[in-house]
């Protein structure tokens, strides 16, 4: 049977790519996922591992996730897509052991106009960081370590 690709069936919503991965992330992949002829602006946010935290040198960093992580990421993405006039959005987060400079998270939003893309992209990364069950463990040069988010 021959089928003709139906764009609306292939993309039932604005959510084009979501993922939680234990290998290197690609900004190009995320940008390609939100590419759309109707878009006039695309905003991308790239989170990377910083070499210090509150003045202390960071030597290594690990992200771990709860098994519900992909479901919660989808819920967050659905809320952002429903609340903002986006054409497409995408979000991927790294888990495992990362080095300074590695990409930890990439989110992107395309919209008809840049203002909407900036606003929705900010909402997507902020909601992802606060609501998606991912934990960060930092080790410091002085041998100490901490779980980020605990006082």
């Amino acid at each position: 049977m021959t089928t003709v690709p139906d764009p609306s069936a292939a993309s039932p919503s604005a959510i084009r790519l979501l993922g939680v991965r234990d290998h290197a992330l690609s900004v190009d992949e995320v940008l390609a996922a939100v590419a759309d002829g109707a878009a006039g602006g695309t905003t991308v946010f790239v989170g990377t591992v910083r070499d210090s935290d509150e003045g202390r040198p960071v030597t290594s960093l690990g992200y771990s996730a709860h098994p519900s992580v992909e479901n919660v990421l989808r819920e967050v993405a659905e809320r952002v897509a429903a609340a903002h006039p986006v054409i497409a959005l995408a979000a991927v987060h790294r888990v495992g052991d990362l080095a300074v400079g590695d990409i930890a998270v990439v989110v992107a939003v395309s919209s008809a106009h840049r203002g909407e893309a900036f606003t929705a992209c900010r909402a997507l990364i902020d909601d992802l960081k606060s609501q998606v069950p991912i934990w960060k463990h930092q080790s410091f040069a002085d041998g100490s370590d901490e779980w980020v988010g605990l006082p």
């Binding site: 992200y63 709860h66 902020d126 992802l128 960081k129 606060s130 609501q131 998606v132 069950p133 991912i134 934990w135 960060k136 779980w147 980020v148 988010g149 605990l150």
Partner: peptide
């Protein structure tokens, strides 16, 4: 029962 500490980005600087 699952015991979940605060998530990585739930507080602090943005």
């Amino acid at each position: 029962i699952e015991v979940l500490p605060p998530f990585a980005g739930g507080s602090g600087q943005v």
